[in-house]
């Protein structure tokens, strides 16, 4: 720990952040689909697990069985990461009541995740709303102390779990809830390939942005710190690659001028 900061699990990123993340705050990791957000957030949890911390991954985009499979491509031991399946079931259109994801839902350790997808039960389906998720997390945070939490993604939460809520206000209140819970949280935000960042990007204490550019040599990925409240940080945009050991940021020696 440097100045009480915690490591992200990516050495180059820690350098860009001048040591790491200030704990107990929410942060945003944004980028277009396929830019490496989930990999980055998994690495963040892995770093925690390796230090004996309690880590929770809240999956809203992909079923946990697939995340488990995908992580096999990396040389990671992520078995102790806890996984909360917050994917909504197939929606029902009959007037039978849907049950919201309830406080009885428990996260499972990655090692215990089944290889096949959870099937929507015939008579009731499980729907996640921003309200039910918040309640559930609240109970979980009281029951046990989580050190690191990832919400993947806040975009899915906004798109699929706010049917009757006002989107930006609700997102804001959800982020406020996370800030008050004093858990270091990474929230992923899906960005369109071009155009402007969605408003939730402005609500966090810091934003790490991933960029995906194409040229003759293929996809080139870049990372930048868009903002970081309460800490100095690197202003430049750095290239990074995804290897079998995860994301590696190529940060040049500190003090050197930028190559414009």
């Amino acid at each position: 720990m440097i100045n009480g900061k915690i490591h992200t699990g990516i050495a180059g990123l820690d350098r860009m952040l001048h040591g790491g993340l200030v704990p107990h705050r929410p942060y945003i990791v944004s980028g277009p689909p396929g830019s490496g957000k989930t990999v980055l957030s998994m690495q963040f949890l892995l770093e925690g697990v390796q230090g004996g911390e309690r880590c929770l991954f809240v999956a809203l985009e992909e079923p946990p069985n697939e995340i488990k499979q995908n992580m096999r491509a990396f040389k990671w031991v992520a078995d102790d990461v806890e996984m909360l399946d917050a994917n909504s079931d197939i929606r029902r259109f009959e007037p039978t009541p849907v049950i919201e994801i309830s406080t009885e839902v428990e996260p499972a350790r990655l090692r215990d995740i089944d290889d096949r997808i959870r099937k929507t039960p015939d008579f009731e389906s499980h729907e996640v709303t921003v309200h039910s998720l918040q309640q559930l997390l609240k109970t979980l945070f009281i029951k046990r102390r989580y050190d690191r939490v990832v919400i993947d993604s806040i975009t899915a939460l906004k798109y699929f779990c706010m049917r009757e809520f006002e989107e930006s206000l609700t997102t804001q209140s959800f982020m406020r809830f996370l800030a008050e819970s004093r858990v270091t949280t990474v929230l992923t935000v899906e960005l369109p390939e071009e155009g402007v960042a969605p408003p939730e990007a402005f609500l966090a204490r810091g934003e790490i942005r991933l960029h995906k550019l194409r040229d003759e040599s293929g996809i080139r990925r870049f990372i930048s710190i868009e903002k970081y409240k309460g800490s100095s940080h690197d202003e430049f945009v750095y290239p990074f690659e995804i290897h079998s050991s995860g994301i590696a940021v190529q940060v040049a020696e500190a003090g050197k001028g930028p190559a414009a």
Binding site: Q250, P258, A260
Partner: peptide, 9 residues
């Protein structure tokens, strides 16, 4: 003056 943005490799 903040340095101009640029991609450093």
């Amino acid at each position: 003056a903040p340095p101009p943005p640029g991609v450093r490799r």
